[in-house]
Nucleic acid binder design. Sequence first.
DNA 1: GTTTAGCACTCAATATGTCTGAGTGCTAAC
DNA 2: GTTAGCACTCAGACATATTGAGTGCTAAAC
Lengths: 342, 342
Amino acid sequence: MELSDRKKIILSAIVEQYIRTGEPVGSKSLLSVLPMSLSSATVRNEMAELADMGYLEQPHTSAGRIPSNKGYRYYVDNLIDHSALDEVQKKQIESCVLESSKDPDKIIEHASEALADITNCAALSTAPTVTGSTVTRIELVPIGRRTAMLVMLTSKGLIKSRVCRADGDITAEVVEKFYNIASASLIGTSLDEISLATMQTLAASVSEEIFTMFSLLAAVSELAHDASRSDVILEGQSNLLNHRELESNTYELMEFLRKGDAIKSLVKAADGKDLNVLIGKEAQYKQLEKSSLILSKYNINGNDGGIIGVVGPTRIDYAKLIPSVKYLTELVGKLLTQALEE
Amino acid sequence: MELSDRKKIILSAIVEQYIRTGEPVGSKSLLSVLPMSLSSATVRNEMAELADMGYLEQPHTSAGRIPSNKGYRYYVDNLIDHSALDEVQKKQIESCVLESSKDPDKIIEHASEALADITNCAALSTAPTVTGSTVTRIELVPIGRRTAMLVMLTSKGLIKSRVCRADGDITAEVVEKFYNIASASLIGTSLDEISLATMQTLAASVSEEIFTMFSLLAAVSELAHDASRSDVILEGQSNLLNHRELESNTYELMEFLRKGDAIKSLVKAADGKDLNVLIGKEAQYKQLEKSSLILSKYNINGNDGGIIGVVGPTRIDYAKLIPSVKYLTELVGKLLTQALEE
DNA sequence: GTTTAGCACTCAATATGTCTGAGTGCTAAC
DNA sequence: GTTAGCACTCAGACATATTGAGTGCTAAAC
């Protein structure tokens, strides 16, 4: 399966030229970018062999070659340097990301926005995963007669809050009772254990103001559910319109990304490795068969955080984007570690 | 400027058929949908006159007619019933909107999502306006050694919160000092007065822990700024891809909507009236010249709230969508009034 | 005066045919 | 193993008919 050096050079040149121009690459036009001097016939022979081996394909008989998925795969795995980030890029990423606020959600959102802009692709990201985290604290801040702010803190440092409205007045006693219940039955439990049903039984245990208490506890369960949902955030979808090879099914692609369920499972599957590149059909979804994903994990305090990545056409500039995405996630990791530091 | 009854019927039929089919409407094909029996020649004469008057235009000599902006305008203003909502639609809207949570932001977001789905257009919305509102309360809930949750309540019932991180430990004294400053200098001031600069001078007035205090106050200003920003929320952009008459410049349109500045000013301009329909060039933006907006205001407790509306091609089903949007905003208004009730 | 039938005319869309050129595969010579 | 040369392929561009939905106009019918 090992390719000769010359084949490597030729494959690499074809991939790069195709990525640049979007046109099938012919033997003749390749000559000018090859480092050695060869005739077009020789190149043709090499290309024919590469095609036989499955690295290239031909849109039609009398056209040049384009890389197959396998070709891209080989290129990504063996022919490029995943850390070769040029200074200009680096600076650009830094300037975009570092001017961010200190709110963790904002940092991630902002970073994916920047990524979408820089790459001219759609960017996707997930907030830090909370799987397995427990509730470490719950605050109830009364605001109106029947409204309050609910703040929940989890063992992994994630903070979630929401406004909630009770079906009865939130008196000092209610607040106190709420704290009693919370510290007795909520603190220390894992997020997935807090369902509407368990809250219901919990509320039933109080003697008075059941309804008030229940509406508060229901809000807690919504909040817990919200926190563990870890939606995929999508930015710069409209960039996908700029890639004409996606044109035929941009709508399907955008809907697919928007729905988020499938992409969530992909992202989850990618969670193991630091960097994940999915090329075309490798992603196993019909809607993605003309697209590639570059997903990279960020770490918070050395632990798994979430994922940031890009979606573009298979004909994406891997050599430039892979290092960019990697670098971006490193930066985001650092920023988040800082932001969540006690 | 008044049209004869027959012209009204014909114009209405043309608009409706064009909306349905997307094809220029010819005199012959109109016959079948007209309530009276006429020859195609007569209809042709009427159509020629309507075209002379500017209500119709012709894509090319040998094609049928399509409504001009003026034609749509007449149709919207005089030929349809803005409240004629059929029961099925009504039920559909209700079922989508009512199952919403109690968080105001979520209600609006959810409603626009539903609207986008129902109409197959992009939906846009703004959170309740805060112009002129003042800060009525600020809560600082310490969470970690250096992190806290900041909650701000405004005179119009809007609640905003965020996590903030201080450049020093948030001790009990700091919290107390913060409350002193807040009640002395923040409560009662209007949101736009809370700038980073004023916070800076405010922080300078404290003797100790200037940096800690400043970082907290800076977060307050960010929060105030956030609250008064009133971004335009966009849902279902991908639906725009389904309208082939927008195809040529979907990207420009989507970017235009995403950027939000221009659309914000449009929405603001629309704020006066309960219902606003902008057809094609009426919106004064080149990117919108093939689109129409239907914007409707929701009220909270009888006061101005925000805007919810749809963006689609000029060839949009006004007769169906106008009542739908209107009804949706009424529902949302009720829900929000309920949710924000003390 | 309004309505209608009839007819010549227009023009986008479609189909058909031809040409061109970039690119290939193969063979035979270097 | 490399290269020159040549026959072959085929998408895309271009020119040219064909079709048909639709128009405007006129003159007759109501």
